[in-house]
Amino acid sequence: MTMARQVRMTVNGAACEGLAEPRTTLADFLRGELELTGTHVGCEHGVCGVCTVLLDGRAIRSCLMLAVQADGADVTTVEGLAEPDGKLHPIQEAFVEEHGLQCGYCTPGFLMAICELLESNPSPSDEEIKDVLGGQICRCTGYQSILRSVHSAAAKLGGGRSATGA
């Protein structure tokens, strides 16, 4: 076991710091040290995408990255999507309206992956959506309603608003 060290990052726009051993994953750091439990883990071996967060604008698997590797980064998690007054982000609204979730455990990961997608491609086709979401597993919905949610979110965000709200 090696000594824990101080790790600093910007999370959802706020400067955060905490202690992490070199082996602590970013997922565990966010969930444990920073108490941001909205990011879930489903496999901890990089397949399910449940742990997806944005790191400097890119969707990454927080179970596969170490917290120390994210030192100095700008991280966005599901907690950073809705307004502080509770107003949902358009992608979240779309998921609610289109029944894009059942148990909701996979949802934070999907939302973050979709943020990245819509940022770079504001009106993706079915195929483009499948390309990106092929790495996110949902065991409940059968993906049909998730596909609808992405299209609906894209429509809501049309008008040039950025997917991450930036």
Binding site: T37, H40, T77
Partner: peptide
């Protein structure tokens, strides 16, 4: 109807056991 469960789930606020 929209599900009453969803706002809390899509914002990551629903408490699962590991939380």
């Amino acid at each position: 109807v929209k599900r009453v469960e969803d706002p809390s789930l899509v914002t990551g606020r629903t408490e699962f056991i590991d939380d």
